[in-house]
Amino acid sequence: MTLRQAQGPDPRLSINQATIKYADLATALRVTADAGVQSIGLWREPVNEVGLDVAARMLADSGLRFSSHCRGGFFTLPVGPEREAALDENRRAIEETATLAAAGAEGSAAVLVLVAGGLPAGSRDLIGARERVRDAIGALADDAKAAGVTLALEPLHPMYASDRAVVSTLGQALDIAADFDSAVVGAAVDTFHIWWDPQVLEQIARAGREGRIATYQVCDWKTPLAEDVLLSRHYMDEGVIDFGSLTRAVIETGYNRDIEVELFNADIWADDPAHVVARTVESFGTAVSPHLP
């Protein structure tokens, strides 16, 4: 056990609510705070179950920082009523993010994570779909700026390109973000999605130069993948990702905010939320904390 582990959870650790998916908002806030973790990232569905105003009060009462809001996006639909409805839903997500960030403890971040969306049904136009992502962010940029919210475009592993995210690399996310103010549009750097990329360290450095790292998320990659590949994330000491090189690269850019653990895994979701948080604290301390200043 390191000295930092003996002193309790790393102060940079944030529990993304997806890690304890089946916990309602009250439970998620309680088990996170009870474990000594100082920050939480929330998801829209549990927030909307209780209502935004109630959720903001609950967050404020918890004393936790707010590290990000998940999620917006799904921008690849062609022009029409469904696309406009998606943009309106993202505007509501921007409002939620601003409200929750204001309610969180000092150091909270008004960051809305965006998942680009996959190919529309029947389409093979990957390039066109990415351009519609750029156009959608352009349609939302003024709303985000007015609310003081940063839109964090998250590249997802290429295995999700068809159905979930046509933005697959950090470089692609940064190319889209480059059209906008860095305070308004940045990128989410998630180790699960970018660890394999031969250019990842170069692109992390680029993101730092451009001031684009809006959030840093960690979890591990382990094979064989689950039958549902969405549910293939693992605790940080169970797989093959080199958290040292990735974390040092992110920290060297000057990134100084919370680091979220976001786990999609059916076995983890079925576990007791308090145990999941404790195991997350342990694995973060083993795999990530040694590489933090």
Rank of each mutant, 00 (worst) to 15 (best):
D242H: 09
G239V: 03
W269C: 01
D242E: 09
I241Q: 10
H275R: 13
L263A: 04
E262A: 12
E262M: 12
I268L: 02
S232I: 13
A249E: 11
A270K: 00
D228C: 03
V276F: 03
Y235V: 10
L225W: 14
A274M: 03
A278D: 11
R257N: 12
D258G: 05
I268F: 00
L230A: 12
D237C: 09
V261H: 07
A266R: 01
N256P: 03
E260N: 15
L230D: 11
D271L: 01
V229K: 11
E227I: 14
L263C: 04
R248L: 07
R248I: 05
T247Q: 11
D271H: 04
S232K: 13
E227L: 15
V240G: 12
N265W: 00
R248K: 14
V261F: 01
D272L: 00
H275G: 02
S245I: 11
R233W: 08
I268D: 01
D258I: 06
R233S: 02
A270F: 00
P224S: 10
A226P: 08
E262Q: 15
A266D: 06
W221P: 04
A274N: 03
A270I: 03
E252W: 01
T247I: 14
T253M: 06
I241R: 07
N256T: 13
D237N: 15
A270N: 05
D228F: 07
D258P: 04
W269V: 00
D272V: 00
T253H: 05
L263G: 05
S245H: 09
V229D: 02
E252H: 02
F264C: 05
V277T: 08
G254Q: 04
S245E: 13
G244Y: 03
Y255A: 09
D237I: 02
L246I: 15
R248Y: 08
F243D: 04
A249M: 10
V261Y: 08
M236G: 07
V276L: 03
V250W: 06
H234N: 14
G254L: 02
V229E: 10
D267I: 02
F243Q: 08
Y255E: 11
Y255F: 15
F243W: 06
V276G: 06
M236A: 11
L230C: 07
D242Y: 13
G254S: 02
T247E: 10
H275I: 07
N256I: 01
V277W: 10
V277K: 09
P273S: 04
E260R: 09
A266M: 06
I259H: 13
I259D: 10
L263D: 04
K222R: 15
R233T: 08
F243P: 06
L231T: 11
S245L: 12
A278P: 08
A270T: 02
Y255H: 11
H275T: 12
H234W: 15
H275F: 06
E238N: 00
D237K: 07
L230I: 12
S232P: 14
L231V: 07
K222F: 05
A226K: 03
D242M: 12
T223D: 12
D228E: 13
